[in-house]
Design a binder for these strands. Structure first.
Lengths: 344, 344
DNA sequence: TTGTATGCGTTATCAT
DNA sequence: ATGATAACGCATACAA
């Protein structure tokens, strides 16, 4: 039952079958414009007959270009990343690159090892939300072209979510609805994304003369959101902006478990827009266009790889509010009291 | 601002620095047991000083072993796959393999192209829920060791979910609660998984003397489930088994939109257990252990790669019911009528 | 235990 | 427009 893996035909066999030199076969697949049309056709026929496909490994060794790129994410299971990966993958494919995927499991040292291990096999890296410290990232960037997603390191190519625009829209939306006291349920303190979102929320709340309290989700997960909901229920806020959609979903569940209805008794806004409308009620959220971030990162990387230099080393992707069904006017009577530290 | 990518040090430079031959350096990293301890230590020191890392590409060309495996999935964004990918990735990593990820976008021909393109760069393939036709899969299997997940092709190594056990438990659970009329909301007709689940549900329903109707979700998505819910509401079934969790979630939303409460007016059971308890109420579902499938597939593949033959070419992963909060006894009065074709 | 020499499949340089 | 040949970086028979 064991199938003997057949050896792939080589350039030499194609050459002899087509009656040409190996160089000609090589050129047929890499620079056909240098060859007579008849010749390439004959070679292609021979190749097809043998089932020949250029060996990417040998090609890589010879040219120094691997034709691969590496994409490293902290956690594939986080719904933020699959659309990003998907878009990156599709984009890379159409540019002729295959992609190595690495999951660092949120561990900086795994990230480091992964990168050094696959470095020779790829032409460049894309690091999405890297947990690695700046000096190590710079070290890797010195060896291979590298593009960051959601991490802002000066001098390195990066694709960033412009959170402030979306957060400002979200806060304005709440202000327009009549909310005066709102909460931000935060994510990982060390996360660039969280810092950006929180300070943007604080700034926007101040601008609209609202009161904003910060509540920490123990972890940026559904469970974390659930836990935060009990804390939330003891305040007098009428609306909540969550670190991301997952946390928002957890908050909604936690609120429901306490008999608080969304949006009537609490408006909830998420971030990322990765759950689409798979929540009930459909979640009002800030769309982060993570798929586009993945695509842009690949574009940027391939531009660097081909051009040799960075055409633009800081791409900002706008975010914007998507209003669905988890936000509405606050109830006339706020029946809960506040004890939390207050910003603004 | 453009950083000149530094060239990686080669085996030759390490050799001269350590005062040994290139072969000795090579052995230091591949077969150190052949060398004197002092020697390897000296070589390692030199390597560390230069920042030398064996070039995997050159190694692959020389040995024929790439140290990579390919994992191809139809859609990364489908929540069934991320845990599987994650586990496969982790397992592969600990076995010393890096992983190429391919997303076929549900298109058979993309799958085919992906496979032929990266074939020379990998030692073996894992195809998760492939959409490709059997003859093409066999063709690829003839070139490289290949492991299937959720596809049952005779003679090929495969990891399968044993759906019948889980479905039987689900149906029995419903029977125990007192349900007599249930529905199966199906997934893609061409999917092996769907066929398995549907026929298992029909068989189990017959065994317990229940009436089962089949309703087709237009697509195996949240939206598909929502649409199916309206159809569902017009029947007299008191419980539904969905093709997967996503469809179940959609059904719940669709039911809610029509004022039908889950589980009081309709029990719902999902499949896969990938949404954990991120639904509200938490979803009763059949756990498919997709992470384990990913890990087992890698184990199987590496076993084949190292042993040369297949130790076991058909691994069955049991599934089992996880009871959460979307199932309960049917309401005493069934107020809706049925018009659907009936099995059993 | 270590060194020497050759090959892996392809591309690139230099001829023709 | 095409052919001959030397790299690319490493592993491995074979020799010592």
């Amino acid at each position: 039952m064991t199938i003997p893996p057949k050896r792939a035909p080589t350039i030499t066999e194609v050459a002899s079958l087509a009656g040409v030199s190996r160089a000609t076969v090589s050129r047929t697949f890499s620079r056909p414009e240098l060859l007579h049309a008849d010749t390439t056709e004959r070679v292609r026929a021979a190749a097809a007959q043998l089932g020949y496909v250029p060996n990417q490994v040998a090609r890589a060794l010879s040219t120094g270009r691997a034709g691969n790129i590496a994409l490293v994410v902290p956690d594939i299971a986080n719904p933020f990343f699959p659309p990003l990966i998907r878009a990156a993958q599709a984009r890379a494919d159409s540019e002729g690159y295959a992609v190595f995927l690495g999951d660092s499991d949120e561990r900086p040292e795994r990230e480091d090892i992964l990168l050094t291990k696959i470095a020779p096999q790829v032409d460049g890296f894309i690091l999405a939300s890297p947990r690695l410290d700046e000096s190590r990232i710079r070290a890797h960037a010195a060896r291979r072209p590298l593009v960051l997603i959601n991490r802002d390191i000066d001098g390195l190519a990066r694709v960033l979510m412009d959170v402030s625009s979306g957060i400002a829209q979200a806060v304005r939306h709440l202000a327009d609805l009549g909310h005066r006291h709102i909460a931000y349920v935060s994510g990982p303190p060390a996360s660039w994304a969280n810092q950006e979102r929180q300070s943007a929320a604080i700034a926007a709340a101040r601008e609209f003369g609202m009161t904003l309290i910060a509540i920490a989700a123990s972890r940026p997960t559904y469970q974390g959101g659930q836990a935060a909901a009990t804390e939330l229920a003891q305040t007098d806020v009428t609306a909540t902006i969550a670190f991301d959609d997952l946390v928002a979903q957890g908050i909604m569940a936690g609120l429901a478990a306490q008999g608080l209805r969304v949006p009537d008794e609490m408006s909830v806004i998420g971030f990322d827009d990765v759950l689409a409308s798979t929540t009930y009620p459909p979640l009002t959220t800030v769309a982060a266009h993570c798929a586009e971030a993945g695509g842009q990162a690949v574009d940027l990387l391939t531009a660097i790889l081909q051009g040799g230099s960075t055409p633009m080393d800081r791409i900002l992707i706008p975010t914007e509010l998507v209003v669905r069904a988890t936000t509405t006017q606050p109830r006339a009577s706020a029946k809960r009291r506040s004890q939390q530290p207050t910003f603004s």
